[in-house]
């Protein structure tokens, strides 16, 4: 968040700021009134349904609260327990990080690869684009989770197909080592949304750049390396940020695929899932709130790191040209 606003770019700023919004200025007062007037619904929602509950859950995270008796303040005990006396939580952190750090880059690589392929075509790419985008809309539904279990089960389509090329892995669903890869396949399957964004980015790259590169005798690879990638870096960054945050919040599909259990061997017990179980099944609301806050902190850290690093590798049009 912090860095969200640091990359200065010439946006569609108003045609000169007319008057400073000063006190006593009737125009400014009217604007103030209008501004907050239009924001009334959003303000109620923000304070009532987002900020208020957040503060409350932060408070709960320092309590022992079983929902029947009033919350009992216990300081940092929940956080201490999490990191010192709860191997299941530690495992859920590992599982979540593995999923996020492996799944997101792979998904984006797939999205970029297919976007390049589609960009190569002019005719018919609309059909493919739509077909590839469809999974993004339905990927989290109950039915897809059931399908996924079947796809990756023993003697299922995936097992059989791999058997044909001599890889006999058996079912993935019950395999401790393959459960996360199975989830990663599910997220890669939904590569359509970032792909569409990449595609839009590719179509926005000025043709002259490629022509100039060709004049210099650049190979296809060189063109990709020196024109496409830099021109696309802001889009890559945007996708990376959104997909990473999204991946941290994986819940529905893991919940449904493991039937709420987080099995096999806790390999699908993502932090969000564990939080839900602690809160709603075990009624350890304080502990659950603490887990939720740790998830939030992880998301904030990763987002901040991404923004920091972006200065080094994200190029903007002005710099390249």
């Amino acid at each position: 968040m912090t860095v969200l606003t640091t990359t200065k770019a010439p946006v569609t700023v108003a045609p000169a700021r007319r008057r400073q919004p000063g006190r006593g200025n009737p125009r400014a007062r009217r604007e103030l009134l209008a501004g907050y007037g239009f924001l009334v619904p959003w303000l109620i929602g923000f304070f009532g349904l987002t900020l208020g509950p957040m503060v409350m859950s932060l408070y709960l995270s320092f309590t022992r609260y079983n929902i029947f008796t009033p919350p009992e303040f216990i300081g940092l005990a929940n956080y201490v327990r999490m990191f010192t006396d709860d191997p299941v939580f530690i495992k859920s952190v590992k599982v979540t990080l593995t999923y996020v750090l492996a799944g997101t880059p792979l998904k984006l690589a797939a999205a970029l690869g297919v976007a390049l392929l589609l960009n190569y075509f002019t005719k018919g790419s609309g059909f493919f684009r739509s077909a590839f985008y469809a999974p993004s809309l339905i990927g989290a539904s109950v039915s897809i989770a059931i399908v996924w279990r079947a796809m990756f089960g023993t003697d299922g389509p995936v097992d059989s197909a791999l058997g044909l090329i001599g890889l006999d892995l058996g079912g993935w669903v019950g395999n401790v080592d393959l459960a996360i890869p199975m989830m990663i396949c599910l997220t890669i399957w939904q590569f359509g949304a970032p792909m569409v964004i990449f595609l839009a980015g590719l179509q926005g790259i000025p043709q002259e750049l490629y022509e100039a590169a060709e004049v210099d005798g650049a190979s296809s690879l060189a063109k990709f390396r020196h024109v496409t990638l830099p021109m696309l870096s802001s889009v890559i960054f945007f996708n990376l940020l959104l997909e990473t945050i999204h991946a941290f919040q994986v819940f529905g599909s893991a919940f449904i695929i493991s039937n709420g259990s987080g099995s096999p061997g806790g390999m699908l017990n993502f932090m969000t899932l564990y939080m839900y179980k602690r809160g709603f099944a075990d009624m350890q609301m304080g502990y659950a709130a603490a887990i939720a806050w740790v998830v939030l902190i992880f998301v904030a850290i990763v987002a901040a790191l991404l923004f920091r690093s972006s200065k080094a590798w994200v190029h903007y049009a002005g710099e390249t040209r």
Partner: peptide, 24 residues
């Protein structure tokens, strides 16, 4: 605090896609 009270400039990072003429 670092954000100027100017709504337009605030959006920057997430608008880069739109503002640089890169994508759409």
């Amino acid at each position: 605090s670092a954000v100027p009270a100017d709504s337009a400039a605030t959006s920057v990072a997430l608008t880069t896609t739109a503002s640089n003429g890169v994508p759409a």
